[in-house]
Amino acid sequence: MRRLLFIPYIVWMGIFVIIPIGLLVGFSFFDIEDNLTFSNYREFFSWSYLQMSISSFWYAFLITAFTLLVCYPLALIIKQLKLKMFWLFIIILPTWINILLKTYAFIGIFSREGLVNNLAAQLGLPELQLLFSDVAFVIVGVYIFIPFMLLPLFNSINSIDQSMISAAQDLGATRMQVIRKVIFPLSIEGVKAGVQVVFIPALSLFMITRLIAGNKVVTLGTAIEQQFLTAENWGMGSTIGVFLILFMMIIMLFTRTKSKTIGVGRL
């Protein structure tokens, strides 16, 4: 009986987790002519690929940092509201709309005659070339990731006992000191979790990159997509994928949380 239950799950794990990763690693050792070789790895360490990795990390860092900067005060504010769960829900609600649609909306908002430029014109500012720029890419990235960062932040800030805050005030701390010396250190696990859920996907964005940044930004994600679907060089694509997995594991190691939840293990 129990064995019978186990079969579908184990089969799924084998076919869709273990084998794909094995295949990805395996393919990384073949070049475009199906020769067994290390050339893909050599190429990954060439200047152009290193540059791409660095810029991908830089943009992921910017997106994560700005998302955190926006979400932390937001989480603090929501915590103080009376109907906090309702407001949190209202903020999370737009996530149920496909990311693609929201990204598409930004094409309109940032376009030459779009909303932003209309406002700029009314303020007497020169026309901005926002669409297909890296600024736009970072803005849309931050926009997309706000709910994902907000949830773990809010959960950890909200779970801080009110008496901790009262105690800090009682001992003479001002509002800013309470945040700096008590709330922030006590919510550090939430910050780590938030950084984790934003940084890794930000590293591998490709749809937003293509639609909003045009060719201005190349990320590990766009590189993989390009190798697989345009250049049809699966070997090189797999190699980048292997490195992306490696980076992901390193980031997870750094942002490892002391989670007490049963079942949520780590890599």
């Binding site: 008496s163 008590v182 250190p185 006590l186 550090i188």
Partner: peptide, 9 residues
């Protein structure tokens, strides 16, 4: 405080 409210960090 009733639950002591000591800072765990």
């Amino acid at each position: 405080f009733q639950d002591y409210a000591l800072f765990p960090h």
